[in-house]
Every structure is written in structure tokens, then in C-alpha cells.
């Protein structure tokens, strides 16, 4: 994905962003508060025609967002593990060593979406998101502006998607600075488009 692309962050989702589509298909454990007629097929565990009150189901975020609207509640939902008390404690202890990518590749974005819905733990969760980023910030910064020509894949593995983008931004400016320092930017080189074009021509003549 392009580095310059603004990744999913904030309360608003970007309709066309692949990241946001992936993020909003993450599932949340929910319970139905009203009976729903004719949609029993959604629940794979039974072959009833209707969904009864109290049916438990894992629903994707995009569906939860509209069904659990504060003014008209059809379902109640719970946070997934990474946003619950135990994980919040872990993140509070030392956020910088946690593998955020494993517990949710869109940890921040998903959390922010959850905050648009009412939940009795939402305030703690909101604070946790801010603290987590604050704790991890230094490490991301140090990694991204220091490691030149190192294998960074291992470090990147533990970063959330937003953090990865930040990391790439830092790396890019580091690289262009180093190139300038070496005098690479003074050299003229043929544009990538032109050199690729020639290759293609040769392929065709063969």
C-alpha cells in the first residue's frame, strides 16, 4: 500500500479505503435484544427460521455500528479481548513490547470505531488507546529514523497498521537524507518509466 495514503484513523471511516473495509469486518460478540424474523440462517448453529431474543452471535463491526446505535438498540455487544480489562492492564504495564499487530492489525482504528458506541468501559478504553500510542511512540521514532539498511521486517511485525505507516514515513525521509549526504541526489539517472519501457521493447522483439 502507498505510504502517502492516509490510513484509517479517526472517528470517520474512508468508504473507499481497503484498510477500513478490512478493519470493519472484524467481529464482535453480540447478543440480540429483539427477535428478528426470517434471518435465522445467519446463525449457523441452528436451523430455526427466526432469531430469538438472547441469541449470541459474532457480528462484524459494520453491522454492529448500525444495530447497536445508542438511540435504537437491537443488540448489545461486548468488546473483543484486546480492548478489555486484562489487555488494558498489559498495555498499561508496558505497551512498547506488545505485539499490536497480532492482537488486531487495526488496533487504534477499530478501537476508535468502538468508541462511537456506548459501552460502560469506553472511557477507560479511550484513555488506554492514547496511553498505548504515547508509550510506543518513542520506539517507533527511534527505529524508523535510525535503522538504515537494516532488516526491519522483524521490528515492523509488532506494529499496528497506522504505526507501520508512520515507520515507513520515517524511513523514507531517512533514506532520502542519506542519499543526499552521499551525493546520490546530484547524479542524474533515467526515469524508471523509461528504463522499463526499453526492457519491454526488447521482450517483444525476442
Amino acid at each position: 500500500m502507498d505510504v502517502s495514503h492516509k490510513s484509517s484513523s479517526g472517528m470517520l471511516q474512508d468508504y473507499m479505503s481497503i484498510d477500513d473495509i478490512l478493519m470493519s469486518s472484524e467481529r464482535l460478540p453480540s447478543v440480540f435484544l429483539v427477535p428478528v424474523k426470517g434471518l435465522g440462517f445467519l446463525d449457523a448453529s441452528t436451523n430455526k427460521k427466526d432469531i430469538a431474543v438472547g441469541t449470541k452471535m459474532d457480528l462484524p463491526l459494520w453491522l454492529v455500528l448500525s444495530l447497536a446505535h445508542p438511540r435504537k438498540k437491537f443488540i448489545s455487544f461486548d468488546y473483543t479481548k484486546p480492548y478489555k480489562g486484562t489487555y488494558r492492564e498489559i498495555l498499561k504495564a508496558d505497551a512498547s513490547v506488545v505485539d499490536l499487530h497480532k492482537i488486531g492489525p487495526f488496533f487504534y482504528a477499530f478501537g476508535q470505531q468502538l468508541l462511537t458506541l456506548n459501552h460502560n468501559e469506553s472511557l477507560q478504553m479511550a484513555k488506554c488507546l492514547v496511553l498505548t500510542f504515547m508509550e510506543r511512540f518513542r520506539k517507533i521514532m527511534d527505529w524508523s529514523v535510525n535503522a538504515y539498511e537494516h532488516d526491519n521486517s522483524e521490528r515492523q511485525e509488532k506494529l499496528d497498521e497506522v504505526e507501520r505507516n508512520l515507520f515507513k514515513l520515517g524511513q523514507k525521509s531517512l533514506q532520502s537524507f542519506q542519499q543526499w549526504e552521499m551525493g546520490e541526489s546530484r547524479k542524474l539517472s533515467s526515469s524508471e518509466l523509461v528504463s522499463r519501457h526499453r526492457k519491454r521493447k526488447r521482450d517483444m522483439s525476442e
Binding site: 484513523s9 479517526g10 472517528m11 487504534y108 478501537g111 476508535q112 468508541l115 462511537t116 469506553s122 472511557l123 478504553m125 479511550a126 484513555k127 488507546l129 492514547v130 500510542f133 504515547m134 511512540f137 497506522v162 508512520l166
Partner: peptide, 12 residues
């Protein structure tokens, strides 16, 4: 990003 997270917090 930090600002976005803090907006979420104050919104909550």
C-alpha cells in the same frame, strides 16, 4: 494520529 485518538477520548 495522536490528535485523532485524543478527539476520540474527549468525545467519549
Amino acid at each position: 494520529h495522536m490528535y485523532q485518538l485524543r478527539i476520540s477520548q474527549s468525545y467519549t
